[in-house]
Design a protein around this nucleic acid. Structure first.
Length: 863
RNA sequence: GCCCGGGUGGCGGAAUGGUAGACGCUGAGGACUUAAAAUCCUUUGCCCGCAAGGGCGUGCGGGUUCGAUCCCCGCCCCGGGCACCA
C-alpha cells in the first residue's frame, strides 16, 4: 500500500481525508503489533466494551480516543504499541431482545459488533484489528471454561443454595438491575427471594492477596480505597459462649474483645443454625413468626427499617465465659447471617446498635471502658480508653486489653484471635441462556467414584474434595468436562423464554442436558443416542446454569496478547513479551467488581504458573464521565445523548477527537457543549489553511529554504517540550492549547520552514491523526506519521535572556518589568524604585524587607 | 452515618507557594461583502471612574507566610461509593 496524500481534496474536506487515511491504515496494517518485535512493547488496554444496540456513546469515544492518543504518541517514540479491541458480547440485553423478538442473540451480537467496529474505525482509532476477540466465540469460550476448570480443580468453585430474585409471574430469575422497588422492571410483578443451587467462587480465599497486591499497582487512590473497603479486612477475636443447660455453644466474632465483661446479651441472626434448637417451647411461635417475617423482607426493606431495632427473645441463656454471668439470647435481624459467625455478643455500653436495641427492650447496660480514670463514659462510648469493671483487664488501654483477653481466652480454649472479611464469595452462576456453559456434568455417587478410580482427563481435573449437592433424596456429584473436550458450546435453541421453574432456558434443551459421559476421557454423547460401547460411559446431566458476564472480561487482556493460541489462554512467549497492559483505562463504575474479579482470576492463574505477573493491571486510569449539554448524566430518557456519528459527519473525526481531548482533564467529569466543538474545529481549519496549498501541495509560505525567526524557533521548541510532557501525563487539553498558541503565532509569520511544519504535523497527529497524516504526506513523508519519529527540543533555545517579572509592594502586584534573567537583586530593586507605579506605593514608607525570586517576582515589604 | 472526589469569569477550563483567569466557547464593536455565511481585527471577571487609575475577587470563616486558588484548622454545598459488617 503506497503512502500518498488524499487526491482531489479541495479545502479542508475532512470526510474525504478521513476516508482516505482510514482506508490506508486498514490496507497497510499500520497498527498491527507483532509479538516479539525488537522494539520495546507498550500494551494499552481499554475496558472491554459491551456491544449494545445503541452503539458507541460519548464515554466510549473519550476512553478510546484517550488511549489512542497515548498509543500513537508512544508509537512515534519508537515503542511497539499494542492497542487491541474486542467484545464482551455475552449478557442480558441480547437475551432479552431474543425473548421479545426471537432474533438469536448471536445475530444481535454480530450486528452490534459490526456497528461498533464501524464507529471505532470512523473515529480513526489505531487498533490492531487482527487481534479482535469476542467472548461468545467458541474458541474464546473454550479458554474461559478452561480457566473455570483451574478454579474447580483447586477447590475454588463450589455449589451452595443462595437466594435469587424470583419473579413468579415471569417465571424467571431477575438480575438486581431488573428489580425496581421490589417489582420486576418488565411488567411490575412482585419479586421474592428464593434459594437456588448456585455456583460460587471462593474469592475470600484470596482476600489477603487481593488486599496486599494493591500496594504494588499504580492505581487511582480512590479506587484502591474502594477495593480495600470492599474486602473489609477486620481483625478481632472469636469467642465461645456456652449455652446454659445445653450441649451447645455460640461462636461470635468481635473486634472489641476488650469489652467482653460488658456483654449483657447475645443476638443470633434469624438465619442462624442454632435458633431452632435453642428456642424454648414458650418462645417457639414468636421466634418462628419473626424469622419468616425477616425472610420475607428484601434487602431494601431491611435497610429502610434500620432505625427501628426489632427482635425476639429465644428464652435461652448463654454464659459469659469471663464472668459466668447468664445473659439472654435474642434473635434480631440487625445481625447479618452472612457476616462473621452470624451471631454477636452485645455490648450495649460500647456499641451504638446494641445500645439502641437494649434501650428498646430494656436490657442491662454495663459500661466497661472509660475515656480516662477520672471520667465516666457517655453511653454509648465507642472510642478507645481504659478498661474498668473488667477483672484482670482493669486499667489496661483498649489495645492492651484486647491483646490480654485474647491470650486468656486462647489459654482456656474459650476463644482465639480471628480475622474477618466483608468480602463474600462470588456468586458465579446465572439462570440464563446467553452465557458460557459450565464445563461440568452432574452424576450419581457411583459414577463419581468410577471417575475418581479411573486415571484419565476427568480424574486429573477433579478437586480433592467433591463438589456435590443433595436434591430429592439423591446426591449429585460434579464431574469436570476436561480441557481436551472443550469448548462446551450452547445448544441451538429456538425458544429463549425462561423455563418457568427458575432454571436457565437451557434446561429445556433436553437433548443437550441429558448425556452419556465417559468418566475416563470426558467425552459426551447426547442421551437421545444409544449408550456408547465400553464401561466408562455413565448417565449424566449437564449443568444448565451459565457463567455471568464477568467471566469473559476477567481474562480478555490475556487473550489479546495471543488471540489465536490453541494450547493456552495465551502462549508463554506472548505473555513474556507483553507481560501486562502498561496502561489500562476505563470508567470508575468498574472500580470494584470487574477489577477485583479479574485480579482474583489473575492471581489464581499466577499460582498455576499460567501468567508471569502477580497483578493484571499495573497502571490504571479512569476517564471522567461526559455529561449531557444540560449538565446531567446522558440518558435516552433525558434526550441529551451525544452520538459520535452525528458530529463525525458534521465536523469530522479529527475535530470530534480534538474536542473530547480539549474539554478538560481526562479524569474530570465534564459537560458536553456542542458550541465548544467550534474551537477545535476552527483550529484544524486554520491548520489546514496555514500549511496546505489550494492546488493540493503545501502553502506557499511553507518553504524548505526558509529559516524561522528566533522567536518562532523558541516557541516551536517550547511547544515540543510542553506537548511531550503533557502527553506523557495525559494532559491533552493543555497540550492542545499549546499547539493553538504556536499556530496563532505561525499565522503571523511571513514564512515557515518545512522542518517546523513537520514538527507541527507530528505533534498534532496523535490527537488529529487524519490531518496529521495528510500534512505529513504532503511534507514528503514516506510512511505513516506514527513512524515519523517524535520531535525533540533543543534546551538551549528555551533559555530566555530576558524575563518578565512582577513588581510587588507588600505582596500586591503593582507593576511589571522586563529584566535580564540573571539580574541582581540590587538592580531590580533600583528599577522598581524608579517605576512610578511602584514608587507611588512606596511614598513615605521605608523598605523593611526585599524578597526576590529571579524570573518570577520582586516583593518590597514597606511600612 | 462512614469513606473518596470536587467548588476559579456568562460557559469549558489554565495556573499547585510567586504578576489569578492561559487556551477555547459565548457576547459586543469593527473590516471584507449588494447582503449573508465564512474569515480577519479589537474587546469581554466584578465595582467606581470621561480617563489616568483605584478597589474587590478562586464556596464560607479562621490560621501559617513577605506572598495562599495552592499548605493547615473549622464549616457549607455538589458528585460518587459503602451503608446495622459487630
Amino acid at each position: 500500500m503506497e503512502y500518498a496524500r488524499a487526491e482531489g481534496c479541495a479545502g479542508y474536506d475532512f470526510s474525504a481525508l478521513e476516508r482516505h487515511w482510514q482506508g490506508y491504515w486498514d490496507a497497510a496494517g499500520t497498527f498491527a503489533a507483532p509479538t516479539g518485535d525488537g522494539r520495546a512493547p507498550y500494551y494499552i488496554l481499554d475496558m472491554f466494551p459491551y456491544p449494545s444496540g445503541a452503539g458507541l456513546h460519548a464515554g466510549h469515544a473519550e476512553n478510546f480516543t484517550g488511549t489512542d492518543v497515548l498509543g500513537r504518541f508512544k508509537r512515534a517514540q519508537g515503542r511497539n504499541v499494542l492497542h487491541p479491541m474486542g467484545w464482551d458480547a455475552f449478557g442480558l440485553p441480547a437475551e432479552q431482545y431474543a425473548v421479545k423478538t426471537g432474533v438469536h442473540p448471536a445475530e444481535t451480537t454480530r450486528v452490534n459488533t459490526d456497528n461498533f467496529r464501524r464507529q471505532m474505525k470512523a473515529l480513526g482509532l489505531g487498533i490492531d484489528w487482527s487481534r479482535e476477540i469476542n467472548t461468545t466465540d467458541p474458541d474464546y469460550v473454550r479458554w474461559t471454561q478452561w480457566i473455570f476448570l483451574q478454579l474447580f480443580q483447586k477447590g475454588l468453585a463450589y455449589v451452595d443454595e443462595r437466594p435469587v430474585n424470583w419473579c413468579p409471574a415471569l417465571g424467571t430469575v431477575l438480575a438486581n438491575e431488573e428489580v425496581i422497588d421490589g417489582k420486576s422492571e418488565v411488567g411490575g410483578h412482585p419479586v421474592e427471594r428464593r434459594a437456588l443451587r448456585q455456583w460460587v467462587l471462593r474469592i475470600t480465599a484470596y482476600a489477603d492477596r487481593l488486599l496486599d497486591g494493591l500496594a504494588d499497582v499504580d492505581w487511582p487512590h480512590s479506587t484502591k480505597s474502594k477495593q480495600i473497603h470492599w474486602i473489609g479486612r477486620s481483625t478481632g477475636a472469636q469467642v465461645f459462649f456456652p449455652v446454659k443447660g445445653q450441649d451447645a455453644r455460640i461462636e461470635v466474632f468481635t473486634t472489641r474483645a476488650d469489652t467482653l465483661h460488658g456483654a449483657t446479651y447475645m443476638v443470633l441472626a434469624p438465619e442462624h443454625g442454632l435458633v431452632d434448637s435453642l428456642t424454648t417451647p414458650e418462645h417457639v411461635e414468636a421466634v418462628a413468626a419473626y424469622r419468616s417475617q425477616a425472610a420475607a423482607k428484601s434487602d431494601l426493606a431491611r435497610t429502610e427499617l434500620s432505625k427501628e431495632k426489632t427482635g425476639v427473645p429465644t428464652g435461652a441463656f448463654a454464659i459469659n465465659p469471663v464472668n459466668g454471668k447468664e445473659i439472654p439470647i435474642w434473635v434480631a435481624d440487625y445481625v447479618l447471617g452472612g457476616y462473621g459467625t452470624g451471631a454477636i455478643m452485645a455490648v450495649p455500653a460500647h456499641d451504638e446498635r446494641d445500645y439502641a436495641f437494649a434501650q428498646t427492650f430494656g436490657l442491662e447496660i454495663v459500661p466497661v471502658v472509660r475515656p480516662d480514670e477520672a471520667t465516666e463514659p457517655t453511653l454509648p462510648f465507642e472510642g478507645d480508653g481504659l478498661a474498668f469493671n473488667s477483672g484482670s483487664l482493669d486499667g489496661l488501654t483498649t489495645d492492651q486489653a484486647k491483646e490480654r483477653i485474647i491470650e486468656e481466652l486462647s489459654g482456656s480454649h474459650q476463644g482465639q484471635a480471628m480475622v474477618q472479611y466483608r468480602l463474600r464469595d462470588w456468586l458465579f452462576s446465572r439462570q440464563r441462556f446467553w452465557g458460557e456453559p459450565f464445563p461440568v456434568v452432574w452424576v450419581d455417587e457411583a459414577a463419581y467414584k468410577a471417575a475418581r478410580a479411573v486415571a484419565g482427563d476427568v480424574a486429573a481435573a477433579l478437586p480433592e474434595t467433591p463438589v456435590q449437592y443433595a436434591e430429592g433424596g439423591r446426591t449429585w456429584h460434579a464431574l469436570p468436562i476436561p480441557p481436551s473436550q472443550l469448548p462446551v458450546t450452547l445448544p441451538d435453541l429456538a425458544d429463549f423464554r425462561p423455563s418457568g421453574n427458575g432454571e436457565s432456558p437451557l434446561a429445556k434443551a433436553t437433548d443437550w442436558i441429558a448425556v452419556w459421559f465417559n468418566v475416563r476421557s470426558g467425552e459426551t454423547r447426547s442421551a437421545s443416542l444409544p449408550r456408547p460401547e465400553g464401561t466408562d460411559w455413565v448417565a449424566a446431566q449437564r449443568e444448565s446454569n451459565t457463567m455471568p458476564q464477568w467471566a469473559g472480561s476477567c481474562w480478555y487482556y490475556l487473550r489479546y496478547m495471543d488471540p489465536a493460541c490453541a494450547v493456552a489462554p495465551a502462549s508463554p512467549e506472548a505473555l513474556q513479551y507483553w507481560k501486562a497492559p502498561d496502561f489500562y483505562m476505563g470508567g470508575t463504575e468498574h472500580a470494584v467488581l470487574h477489577l477485583l474479579y479479574a485480579r482474583f482470576w489473575h492471581q489464581v492463574l499466577f499460582d498455576a504458573g499460567v501468567v508471569p505477573t502477580r497483578e493484571p493491571f499495573p497502571k490504571l486510569f479512569h476517564q471522567g464521565i461526559i455529561l449531557g449539554e444540560d449538565g446531567e448524566k446522558m440518558s435516552k430518557s433525558r434526550g441529551n445523548v451525544v452520538n459520535p456519528d452525528d458530529f463525525i459527519k458534521t465536523h469530522g473525526a479529527d475535530t470530534f477527537r480534538a474536542y473530547l481531548m480539549f474539554m478538560g482533564p481526562l479524569e474530570d467529569e465534564k459537560p458536553w457543549q456542542t458550541k465548544g466543538l467550534e474551537g477545535p474545529h476552527r483550529f484544524l481549519q486554520r491548520v489546514w489553511r496555514e500549511f496546505t496549498g489550494e492546488t493540493g501541495g503545501l502553502a506557499e509560505k511553507v518553504r524548505s529554504d526558509a529559516t524561522d525567526s528566533l522567536p518562532t524557533q523558541k516557541l516551536v521548541h517550547a511547544t515540543i517540550k510542553k506537548v511531550t510532557e503533557d502527553f506523557e501525563s495525559l494532559r491533552y487539553n493543555t497540550a492542545l492549547s499549546q499547539m493553538m498558541i504556536l499556530l496563532n503565532h505561525l499565522i503571523k509569520e511571513p514564512v515557515i520552514s518545512d522542518e517546523t511544519a513537520r514538527t507541527f504535523a507530528r505533534l498534532l497527529a496523535p490527537i488529529a491523526p487524519h490531518i496529521g497524516e495528510e500534512l505529513w504526506a504532503r511534507l514528503g513523508g514516506r510512511t505513516s506519521v506514527v513512524d515519523g519519529g517524535w520531535p525533540t527540543y533543543d534546551p538551549a533555545l528555551l533559555v530566555e535572556d530576558e524575563v518578565q517579572i512582577g513588581l510587588l509592594v507588600n505582596g500586591k502586584p503593582r507593576s511589571e518589568a522586563r529584566v535580564p534573567k540573571d539580574a541582581s537583586e540590587a538592580d531590580v530593586v533600583t528599577l522598581a524604585q524608579n517605576d512610578p507605579k511602584v514608587a507611588a506605593f512606596l511614598e513615605g514608607k521605608t523598605i523593611r524587607k526585599v524578597i526576590y525570586v529571579p524570573g518570577k517576582i520582586l516583593n518590597l515589604v514597606a511600612t
